[in-house]
Every structure is written in structure tokens, then in C-alpha cells.
């Protein structure tokens, strides 16, 4: 798959935005500025961006508790996200949702989700809408290896196949369901499971933006052309804990350091495009600098924004009541 220069720059910029966003949330959380708990996506950027680069405004995604990366990749406003995570009135959801419930339906982002396995049935519904109203849209359910064990996921595989829905299931397998290894908790294989439902599936290196992009392209084309659901199994890595504050005592000695050094999707991308002469290092450096400034600005805005007023407690429960 050939991506032009602008697309490559956009992909890098998006991955860099996710990385800087998550690193900064990590810092701010440690400093005590962020309430509640957050789950960070750093290390998995190539997946969200590689998938979402294939989507347009017709398409919907359902995310997970580890949702910041999907939000950014689907076009959610970064300032609004940061405000939301700080619980401020400038948040995308007015501070009512927080990190685990960031959504922007106008962007086709149907929400991060606090319930592991909550998204796949919803995305079947989004795909049903696209099919019934003939919008040409597709729907993507992101899930972790943990969610892949939920009954809702299996039910959704079955339903998507039975109804021949334009769905792409993306299993982002970072090897850990909370603190439990997927080596132990996932019986069989993701590809074997998909095969059991007659769903075409492919495993890709989650480090490799290009591999993910190509796999998603094929799945999206299949879905748009009435070919039904697909599954993409990405093997990837998370740099931070299950949630912020997780001491990660379950991880191997030096594991995270090794991953950051040798298996970083941004470094991988940078190396590929510069070595192939597609982009100049200076262009990427410039993006790094700009994004850094944007994230800084979003934190300043979030910290400066007002808390929601008490009366907001009672609004937005119903359209009418």
C-alpha cells in the first residue's frame, strides 16, 4: 500500500500526539493533578493510527478503557480530551465521563468503555445502522486480549457473521490482561477463534504501522464491499501499567526498557520512512516539536479551565423526562 507524503506525515504526527499525550498524562497523574484512574496507550500507537488512517467520517469505532489513542486517531479534540481527563468543564464530555468515557459521536468515536468487552456488541449495532441505512460506513471494535475472552466478544463475532455486518474486530494484544498474562488466559489463538466463526483474520506485528495499515485496508475494503466482518490480531506492547500507579511487579526484569529501546513503533516508523527516503528526519523533528508544544498548551488549558458547576450534576441524564 502506497501512502503519500502527507499521509505519512499525518500518521507520524498522530502517533507522536498519542505518545506525548500519554507521557504527559503519566507525569501529571504522578503529580496528583488528575483524579480517578487512567489507562495509558503508549507503545501501542501504530495500531490505533494504522487502523483509523483507513477510516472516514462515515465510520464508527468503539474503544476500551485504554482509549486515548483511539480517540486521537479518530479525530477527537486533544484539548477537550485533556480537559476531560482533568474533570474540567472544557472536557469533551463536560467532565462527566473522564478518561474511561471519552467520546465524540460526531467524530464516529462511540466512547472509551469502562466495561471490558462492552464495545463489540455496540459496534455490531453501529455496523447494522450503516448496513440498514446504506451509508457505506464500517465499524471497528478495538479490544484487548482480556476482552477477547468475554462472552460479549464471542457473541459479537457470531452476530457479525450471521448478519454479515461491516465490522472489523481489532484485538490489541499487549500480553497482559491487567496483571494476568494472555499466554495463560487466552485459550487457543485469536486467529483460531476467528476461524471458528468463519471470520477472515490476520495477525500483524503491532510495532509496524505499515503492516497494520495494510491489514486494516484489506478488512475495511471487505467490509465496505459487503464481505462481512474481519479480525486483526495485533501483537503489541504497553509501556505503562494497567493503570497509572500500577507497580508492574508482574513484568519481567528490564522488559519495558528493552521494549522502549528496541520495539518502539515511532522509532520503527521514523527509521522506515527516512531510510526509504520518503521523509526527512528534519520533518519528523519538526512534528515532534510542534506536538510537544500542543500538548503543553492542552495541559495549561485543562489546568486553567473551570470545574463543572454543581448544577451540571443533574443535567444530561435524559433527552426529556
Amino acid at each position: 500500500m502506497q501512502l503519500n507524503r502527507e499521509q505519512l506525515l499525518a500518521a507520524y504526527r498522530m502517533m507522536r500526539t498519542i505518545r506525548d499525550f500519554e507521557d504527559r498524562v503519566h507525569t501529571e497523574f504522578s503529580a496528583g493533578g488528575i483524579p480517578g484512574f487512567v489507562h495509558l496507550y503508549a507503545g501501542e500507537e501504530a495500531s490505533a493510527v494504522g487502523i483509523c488512517m483507513n477510516l472516514d467520517e462515515r465510520d464508527k469505532i468503539a474503544s476500551t478503557h485504554r482509549g486515548h489513542g483511539h480517540c486521537i486517531a479518530k479525530g477527537c479534540d486533544v484539548d477537550g480530551m485533556m480537559g476531560e481527563i482533568f474533570g474540567k468543564s472544557n472536557g469533551l464530555c463536560g467532565g462527566k465521563g473522564g478518561s474511561m468515557h471519552i467520546a465524540d459521536l460526531s467524530k464516529g468515536m462511540m466512547g472509551a468503555n469502562g466495561i471490558v468487552g462492552g464495545g463489540p456488541p455496540l459496534i455490531c449495532g453501529a455496523a447494522l445502522t450503516a448496513k440498514t441505512l446504506k451509508t457505506g460506513g464500517v465499524a471497528v471494535a478495538f479490544m484487548g486480549d482480556g476482552a477477547s475472552n468475554q462472552g460479549t466478544t464471542m457473541e459479537s463475532f457470531n452476530l457479525a457473521k450471521a448478519w454479515n455486518l461491516p465490522v472489523i474486530f481489532v484485538v490489541e494484544d499487549n500480553g497482559y490482561a491487567e496483571s494476568t498474562g494472555s499466554n495463560w488466559s487466552v485459550s487457543g489463538t485469536q486467529l483460531g477463534r476467528a476461524a471458528g466463526f468463519g471470520i477472515p483474520a490476520v495477525q500483524v506485528d503491532g510495532l509496524d504501522f505499515f503492516a497494520i495499515y495494510d491489514a486494516a485496508h484489506e478488512a475495511v475494503e471487505r467490509a465496505r464491499n459487503g464481505g462481512g466482518p474481519s479480525l486483526i490480531h495485533g501483537k503489541l506492547n504497553r509501556y505503562y501499567g494497567h493503570f497509572e500507579g500500577d507497580a508492574m511487579t508482574y513484568r519481567g526484569e528490564g522488559e519495558v526498557e528493552m521494549l522502549r529501546r528496541d520495539h518502539d513503533p515511532l522509532n520503527f516508523f521514523r527509521k522506515r520512512v527516512t531510510e526509504a527516503g520518503l521523509l526527512e528526519a528534519a520533518q519528523l523533528d519538526e512534528i515532534d516539536a510542534t506536538v510537544q508544544a500542543e500538548i503543553d498548551a492542552s495541559v495549561v488549558k485543562a489546568k486553567g479551565a473551570a470545574m463543572p458547576v454543581a448544577s451540571k450534576l443533574l443535567t444530561d441524564v435524559y433527552v426529556s423526562y
Binding site: 463489540p120 456488541p121 455496540l122 455490531c124 440498514t132 465499524a139 460479549t152 452476530l159
Partner: peptide
């Protein structure tokens, strides 16, 4: 699966 699909469909226009 299908109750969730109904919810997702409702949130997206059906």
C-alpha cells in the same frame, strides 16, 4: 450481542 447491537444502532441513527 443483540441487545448491545440495538443500543449501538440506536446511538448511531436507527
Amino acid at each position: 450481542g443483540f441487545i448491545g447491537a440495538a443500543v449501538g444502532a440506536a446511538a448511531t441513527g436507527l
